[in-house]
């Protein structure tokens, strides 16, 4: 389904550039051995940028929960209502979650606890690619 195209800024550009290469990279603090997402200027734990780097993540995960949207104010999503918005727990980044429309899963048929895999979609306005997740059948 067509989404708004994210506009990268100086802080998160590495994330979005990697998406265009169909790779998921997230911030990781070597000092705290801790993943961090969404991106921030410093590690939230040690407040330092020194050991904060971009690290590739498989994107494998499981569905934590979801909602089904029937009344969104976002114009580009209104045509596809109702649609799923799932929260994914990432296997390789304990405690971190991301959000997904779960392409291929009918609205309100979301299996909590199911495994998902990472894919990428191209957004129409700018061609920016974004991460998405599909249930592993």
């Amino acid at each position: 389904m067509p989404k708004q195209s994210p506009v990268p800024n100086d802080l998160d550009r590495p994330f979005w550039d990697a998406c265009n290469d169909e790779r998921l990279v997230l911030q990781y603090c070597d000092s705290c051995t801790r993943w961090q997402h969404p991106p921030e200027a410093v590690c939230y734990e040690c407040k330092s940028a020194e050991k904060l780097r971009w690290r590739e993540n498989s994107g494998a995960g499981v569905i934590y929960s979801f909602g089904v949207i029937y009344d969104t104010p976002i114009a580009s999503l209104q045509f596809d209502q109702p649609y799923n918005v799932a929260v994914i727990d990432l296997d390789d980044a304990p405690g971190l979650n991301v959000m997904s429309h779960l392409p291929g899963t009918p609205a309100d048929a979301v299996p909590i606890g199911a495994k998902v895999r990472l894919i990428f979609e191209t957004t129409p306005a700018t061609g920016q690619k974004v991460p998405e997740w599909q249930v592993v059948s």
Partner: peptide
């Protein structure tokens, strides 16, 4: 919300959902 692009922190989450109650 009427734009076809999104900036700010919402691009990682809220822009995928929409309603405040999500």
């Amino acid at each position: 919300n009427a734009q076809d692009t999104v900036a700010g922190p919402g691009k990682f989450g809220q822009a995928l959902a929409g309603p405040a109650s999500y």
